[in-house]
């Protein structure tokens, strides 16, 4: 069967369709270039999106007014943790009014699933999920955060005071 094809010079006019399609792109290009409307894209490393207060980032251990760690090492966060990433070693505090405090407090960030249960379980607002989320590193061991890092890392700028101070 003979199929009737369009004349070959028609091929020269495919640019027309192409340009037609390109107008959409062109429109957006011009609009964005001239900043005529707001762009949702953020220039990530230079600019960072504002996170909500409920954002679950890297954990923080809060402090008492005197600067010591708020955690009473009740182990409720460790109990609530579904990933078993928290390891606390309680110890006797020399001050009988404090009685119990964590001599070591470790969170394994690689195990953590950022569920925030620890924050929920804490009766004294001692552990919070912070705002930091950039924690790429070279070795696994550097993902185990200790007490000092959790409460006093530079990003915390001197630490966070717990809301429960009795």
């Amino acid at each position: 069967m003979l199929i009737k094809r369009p004349p070959s010079y028609h091929k020269l006019f495919f640019f027309r369709g192409m340009l037609l399609g390109m107008t959409v792109t062109l429109k957006h290009f011009i609009l964005n270039l001239l900043r005529i409307r707001k762009i949702p894209t953020i220039q990530y490393p230079e600019k960072k999106r504002e996170r909500s207060a409920r954002f679950k980032g890297k954990h923080i251990l809060t402090k008492k007014l005197d600067g010591s760690i708020r955690c009473t090492s009740c182990l409720l966060c460790q109990t609530a943790c579904p990933a078993r990433c928290i390891k606390i070693t309680p110890s006797e505090h020399p001050d009988p009014k404090v009685e119990k405090f964590p001599i070591s407090f470790q969170i394994d960030l690689l195990r953590c699933v950022m569920c925030g249960y620890c924050e929920e379980a804490c009766p004294v607002d001692a552990i919070r999920m912070g705002q930091e989320y950039e924690w790429a590193d070279y070795s696994e061991s550097s993902f185990i955060m200790d007490k000092e890092y959790l409460s006093n890392r530079p990003a915390l700028q001197g630490g966070v005071i717990s809301k429960v101070n009795s």
Binding site: T72, S73, C74, L76, E99, K100, P123, V124
Partner: peptide, 9 residues
Amino acid sequence: LDCPICDQA
């Protein structure tokens, strides 16, 4: 009510 630091909890 010091359950967090009480061993009996």
